[in-house]
Amino acid sequence: MWLRWIKRLIVLLLGDANADRVVPPTGYTARLTLFSAAAMSFLAVFALAMSLATGRLADRWGEELARTSTLRISAPSEQMAAQTRAAIRVLETTPGVERARALSDEEQRALLEPWFGPDLPVESLPIPQLVEIIETEDGYDAAGLRLRLSAEAPGAVLDDHTRWRRPLISAAAALRSLGWFSIVLIAGTVAAMITLAANAALAANAQVISVLRLVGARDAYIAGAFVRRFTQRALGGSAAGAVLGMGAVAMLPRADTAGGFLTGLGFEGLNWFWPVLIPPAAAAVAYVATRAAARRTLRELP
């Protein structure tokens, strides 16, 4: 059973010299198949890269933001230091809080720098004091903490990031789904294009098919000649498109140098293996599409 399949795969990839000679090559369908397979694989590499990158982003945001919270203390300047100390005391005695620390003026200035520039006089402005909270694995009871803070440091407002973490993560997850959906659409488009090209080739070779039937060729033999040809073309075109796509992705700026989301588009580590699967997948799509088209056409002939 396995041996038979391996033999069929070898014949599929290497061809059957006799059968392949029988069906004359048709120029424009060959070029159409090669081009569409290459273009679609190029796009598939980007869709895959986007899907994997947004997946990583969703995981990172989920992981990082889930374990951090921010305390914002807004109080008159003469009470600010006292309320900050009180809030830190409360946090240090709260189960689920691993550590808490007030951000320094330099750190607060760095946070505001993108909007106000580097020379912002933080100390002279009524800017709230920020306290960074790192949670333990188990996390803390946010409602209980808010109650205690309202008593000890009335100017403190706890932001556990839930409010904006959720839409960000769901946006990243939606982007990831969109990437996978794009890949499915690309596979469907490849199948449609190859079906059209195979139908055109079958129509152009109607006389050849008629002669082959006349001399006793079975449908599987005739279909095989077309299926092999289109599978090989899809594999070759797709390999070229995937290599170009991988090269283009590799040349994108690195995330660590620019730090934005878009520059993080790409493959990391073992993820480079995924685009290698695109050409065999395209070949499989071509095999199924051409086989179905050939069998349908042959069934209509006497």
Partner: peptide
Amino acid sequence: ALMRRRIGVVHQDCQFL
């Protein structure tokens, strides 16, 4: 198809590739 291997046919227009 197998039956046609037992019946040889010569067409007027020959039908070659």
